[in-house]
Design a protein around this nucleic acid. Structure first.
Lengths: 143, 143
DNA sequence: CGGGATCCGGAGGGATACTG
DNA sequence: CAGTATCCCTCCGGATCCCG
């Protein structure tokens, strides 16, 4: 809001000669870049995907996400909570019970994450084939 | 296709009691997980986003993506090429000229990546606010 | 210009133990 | 159960050199 620092949605459209190729702010200290780095985290992505329209407890998430350590799950959840994407609800019972769920903001992000997961599922064969082709070609080269 | 290994798009829908929370294959060796890890890479994401509807040379990409080393850009591009998302065109001239562009498959992925970037741009203030709130609350606790 | 090969430091992340 | 704290090590990724 403050100033016009962000070129934002200039995306495609004008291929105006060879004037300037850059279409949005890619500077490393850019806010968008930092958020993207967070979103582009493998664990974050899986957590958000799993919290579709349900809330889950810590251990449930740990079980569902194969390969995540309790440490990384803990760190990831705290990051997501800090970013306002996931809510953390502590139930004052014993043994303790903590529920994680998407916030309204997190739910909007979930839509695009879900699109990503679906894309992956729909194109996994194509990618597997591309990889096989590439590897085969490389092996030809070496021989 | 082969067998019913992938639960795939079972996503939300039935919250059928507490039978089984898992809604898609989250195993670490799962194909989807591996592709997701690739897509969830920060450099991959930026490269795909930048190759919107233009093809770019190595050095152009390097310039546009602030902070990327030539090594990581090189590695990233080779991965994307292997996955069939980016095409690499070598022009037999001197000095050498190599153009990178999205393949048709890459272009389909670009749609959802673009959605992600746009989401980030649209919600950066909300996230910044959430982070500030969280940090403020934490500082209260410590004091 | 467009990379590949090598070296290397530091952070990311695993395993374990402990606490409320 | 739901974490935090500590230790420790891998490997990610930057810097540098070199070649076609």
């Amino acid at each position: 809001m403050e100033d016009g620092t962000f070129k934002s949605l200039g995306y495609c459209e004008s291929t105006a000669d060879d004037y300037d190729v850059k279409q949005w702010d890619t500077r490393e200290d850019c806010e968008v870049r930092q958020i993207l780095d967070r979103v582009a985290d493998k664990w974050s992505l899986l957590v958000i995907a799993l919290l579709d329209c349900q809330s889950l407890r810590f251990t449930q998430l740990r079980r569902e996400i194969d390969g995540v350590s309790q440490r990384m799950l803990s760190v990831t959840l705290r990051h997501l909570e800090r970013d306002g994407l996931v809510s953390r609800t502590v139930h004052p019972v014993v043994p303790p019970r903590v529920d994680y769920a998407l916030t309204p903001l997190g739910r909007t992000l979930h839509q695009t994450i879900k699109a990503l997961v679906i894309w992956t599922e729909e194109h996994q064969q194509e990618i597997a084939r591309a990889r096989a082709d590439y590897d085969a070609r490389r092996e030809m080269m070496d021989a």
